[in-house]
Write a protein that binds this DNA or RNA. Structure first.
Length: 528
DNA sequence: GATGCCGGGTG
DNA sequence: CACCCGGCATC
């Protein structure tokens, strides 16, 4: 598999993008090199790390050297800016650096039925990465294009035709589009109360939105699932995965066999569905029973499920989507993992909204110390949720086998009595600990603000639960945490001495019974 | 077996 | 929440 192959196979117009921080010919740049098959067979690979690699492909499969404003004479196709003129692409956002960015994948020609191409437009604004980028880009150029064809670049990145001069107007357009997009999808706006306390909520929210939008593209390693194309109207800034650099347990690149079992012990959730800081890492957790495999890529987890649990052919890329049922998308706060693994709590006590339903652990946990289960409440679909027919509240409640591992929360002895209920029982409580276990089918998000325990199970094309069950779920969790001894011997209320309505009135005069007696409840008339 | 009532389902 | 009932413990 090499670029030539792609060039020959790809009949698309210009393509810019594809992130690969560890470019290995024949291996990575998965986006580009595997586009034809990836589109047919399955989700796009997830890019997690590394520098960004740019490549221009021309219609007809010829290579367009990156030559500034000129298209390659060999290329019989058009490059992106020309596509814009024709209205094919909506990738209008070209920053001052001339870098194409944030184009909606849903508008890629591949989804328009014109070609199997997939576009990923990256905006690399990070100056630190630019140099790296430039190097990688040049390297890529040398690899693809004969050096003789390489001309000095007006930009160290992707050269952009001069007729697309980076006007401030364009920037504003980009800005506006970004803001609008974020506003229309961002839970920060929809759920302002969940936003972190700021001195200037409004402006801060906007900044957040913007920084999110840009940082996500700045990371240069976002990805989106192939199935995402099923939702053409949700161009959402992808989650930034650049934090995986900080994640000691993970390694970038192909992580099919990447296993982070330990991390699953700290997977708790966050009501904030959207990554607000770059410490969040999207992970994919296998929900197969007794399998806590956590991978950083959807393709990896899908392959894991497909091969390990479903017994599918390892080599086959074919996927009927069944594996989507067996993993969930989670967000992990890298800070929490690195700061202190010893202290853990299902939810952060400092999250906005009411406190968690269960008593907070005695060990204080930093605000950031949590693992954010991506909120299904979020209208901003994460990578996989974009594939959902609706972007809202996709929660799986079936498939009990998807239960995540129970989590035991150690508490102090002073809390031990909580499990005894109201004293209706002999107090078979939970001893010195509160055992809290929740399962993904039960764990739902809570309504608007408030701590949320969420597991958004990633599923494609699956029926999902609307977002109504939240509260009861929390209550359910509470019940799980403080289980009342279920009708243990002696817990039943002893029969009263007084005659009840039944005895008094008899079956014939049942209408004279108290309602409780009628409903076979404890008699209310002749109480003991 | 009769009685009391808990737990759960239904509308 | 009212209504209803299965099922269990107790008498």
């Amino acid at each position: 598999m090499d670029t030539r192959y792609i060039l020959e196979q790809t009949s698309v117009g210009t393509r810019v993008g594809g992130a690969d921080f560890n470019y290995r010919p024949g291996r990575s740049v998965l986006c580009d090199t595997r586009v034809p098959t990836a589109e047919k067979n399955g989700p796009m690979p997830v890019y997690t790390h590394g520098p960004v690699f740019y490549k221009l492909l021309m219609d007809g499969g010829s290579v367009s050297g990156v030559k500034g404003e000129q298209t390659s004479p060999k290329g019989n196709g058009r490059i992106l800016h020309e596509m814009e003129k024709t209205g094919l692409g909506e990738q209008k956002d070209t920053g001052s650096s001339g870098i194409l960015k944030r184009a909606s994948p849903t508008h890629c020609p591949g989804t328009n039925g014109q070609s199997p191409g997939v576009f990923m437009h990256l905006d690399i604004r990070n100056p630190g990465k630019q140099a790296e980028l430039a190097n990688n880009f040049r390297a890529a150029q040398e690899w693809i294009i004969p050096p003789s064809e390489i001309q000095p670049l007006p930009s160290s990145h992707i050269p952009v035709p001069r007729n697309r001069k980076p006007s401030g107007h364009a920037d504003k357009e980009v800005m506006a589009a970004t803001v609008l997009t974020s506003l229309s999808t961002s839970p920060l706006v929809l759920n302002p109360s969940c936003a972190p306390p700021v001195t200037e909520p409004g402006s801060r929210a906007w900044k957040d939105v913007l920084s999110n939008s840009y940082s996500s593209s700045t990371s240069g390693n976002w990805s989106w699932d192939n199935s995402d194309q099923s939702v053409p109207s949700t161009p959402s800034p992808p989650l930034s995965n650049d934090t995986n650099k900080n994640f000691p347990l993970l390694t970038p690149g192909d992580d099919v066999n990447e296993d982070v079992p330990e991390s699953t012990h700290f997977m708790f959730e966050d009501p904030i569905p959207r990554k607000r800081k770059n410490s969040m890492k999207v992970m994919f957790k296998c929900l197969w029973k007794n399998c806590e495999k956590v991978l950083s890529t959807s393709s990896g987890i899908q392959r894991h499920v497909r091969t390990v649990h479903l017994g599918r052919n390892t080599d086959s890329d074919y996927s009927d989507g069944e594996e989507d049922f067996y993993y969930s998308e989670i967000e992990i706060n890298m800070d929490s993992l690195t700061e202190g693994l010893s202290s853990l709590t299902p939810t952060s006590p400092t999250t906005c909204g009411p406190p968690p339903v269960f008593p907070p652990p005695l060990t204080a946990v930093p605000h950031s110390e949590r693992i954010n289960m991506n909120s299904s409440h979020s209208p901003t679909p994460t990578l996989l949720s974009q594939s959902a027919p609706s972007t809202l509240c996709h929660i799986r409640t079936d498939h009990a086998y998807q239960a995540t591992a129970p989590v035991r929360i150690p508490v102090g002895p002073e809390l031990a009595g909580l499990g005894n209920g109201n004293g209706t029982g002999p107090g078979h409580g939970t001893g010195n600990g509160i055992s809290a276990s929740w399962q993904s089918p039960h764990v739902l998000f809570k309504g608007v603000p408030g701590p949320v325990i969420q597991v958004r199970t990633v599923s494609i094309g699956e029926k999902r639960q609307p977002a109504a069950i939240t509260h009861s779920t929390v209550i359910k969790n509470h019940a799980l945490i403080t289980p009342a001894p279920k009708s243990a011997p002696g817990t039943r209320k002893p029969r009263g001495e007084a005659k009840k309505c039944r005895k008094v009135y008899g079956m014939e005069k049942r209408d004279m019974w108290c309602t409780a007696c009628r409903w076979k409840k404890a008699c209310q008339r002749f109480t003991d």
